[in-house]
Design a protein around this nucleic acid. Structure first.
Lengths: 201, 201
DNA sequence: CCATCAGGTTAACGAGCGCTAACGTCCCTG
DNA sequence: CAGGGACGTTAGCGCTCGTTAACCTGATGG
């Protein structure tokens, strides 16, 4: 019988620590020796698990993009049929906020270190990101039909900027607490979308 | 008599190109030779104008922070007396949007490369940023008295995230055009603040 | 009981970096 | 017309980095 949720493998440890370090000091600012030290082994030992430093970043960024996209598709499928588009949008916002609050280092990496990837990986990540954005755009336009498509796309990007501000919001366990912060971000995102339409007073 | 606005000096050229390169590939990802090449001189020639690579980044970040803060104070002084706090908030938003749209590389650097600074410079930048945030917080709380101070501070940080999303919004001259983008961002920022209060329906 | 292999170790290489040294060349000024 | 400062250049130093090579060890399994 397997242990509950299978204790984190070495690869996963490495990815987690690498994400934290990359987010703190940037991809080029972190040496492989530091990443190794963070998981208790030393520098070149990492090469038993990854072909190189680039590969760690690639796996992180692709993983983030896939996780966001598949999560959004799942939420769309679950919420889409039963309730109206408003419920779908709320679910998308909730999912993004959960991710931004629980994996702050990854959110930081997601739009910061994309240019350090090999061409093929970068193309893949951008494609996943684009699909994620387009999924949001469709839902937003159902909730706010007065919004033209280019404006909706800009609005989605801007709301991502709003939701991804979590790294600036004081460390977990500080001022407002997680639930309050999530609620605040959710209301602000909805308010921002609602105000995006030029017609709205 | 001086020429109109004094043709850009070598220092200013260097700072502008360095900002662009740092924003594109990160502080550690850009070599001094590249910065030199971007202004038509080669690597070590930069050291006639700056004591080191770090100094360029420091001057950029301190300059940004000072420009934002002094601009906000000026707007507060100009708009504060005559009209109500709503007009002040609109003016702050407008100023921040102008900056985010006109100096995208600087906006990118502003919250990305802060940790690469020497301790003293980083302290200075953080202090300027904090004053800028607090100025916003006060104005926001006058417009939305139902908002507690910690929530207001979080809301301000989140709206900065929204406004600073301009680098993701398609290069200048694309889809919506500058005025339309500025208007969209402005409405969304106001909508986000308005929705931040828990009481709001 | 020994072969294998996963997962480490240390040593060292080659490239690239920021920066300094030494030198050249205008241009301004007394 | 000296002389000096502003502003370049190229050569090269010292260091750090990512990566490879060579070796070690403990668990596994036929």
């Amino acid at each position: 019988m397997a242990t509950r949720t299978d204790a984190p493998t070495r690869r996963e440890q490495i990815l987690k620590e690498a994400a934290r370090l990359f987010a703190e000091r940037g991809f080029h600012g972190v040496g492989v020796d530091e990443i190794g030290a963070a998981v208790g082994i030393s520098g070149p030992g990492l090469y038993r698990h990854f072909p190189g430093k680039d590969a760690m970043l690639a796996e992180l960024l692709v993983g983030i993009s896939e996780q966001l996209l598949t999560g959004a598709r799942r939420r769309l499928a679950e919420t889409g049929g039963a309730a109206g588009p408003e419920a779908v949008l709320d679910s998308l916002i909730e999912g993004h906020i959960d991710f931004a609050l629980d994996d702050r280092p990854l959110i930081t990496l997601h739009d910061r270190e994309l240019d350090r990837l090999r061409d093929s990986d970068r193309k893949l990540v951008r494609q996943l990101q684009r699909q994620y954005v387009e999924l949001w755009v469709e839902v937003v336009r159902k909730v706010h039909p007065g919004l033209a498509e280019p404006a909706a796309r800009s609005a989605v990007h801007s709301v991502f900027g709003l939701l991804n501000s979590t790294p600036h919001l004081g460390r977990p366990g500080s001022s407002p607490g997680r639930a309050a912060t999530a609620g605040l971000l959710h209301r602000m995102a909805r308010g921002a979308f609602a105000a995006a339409s030029p017609a709205a007073g």
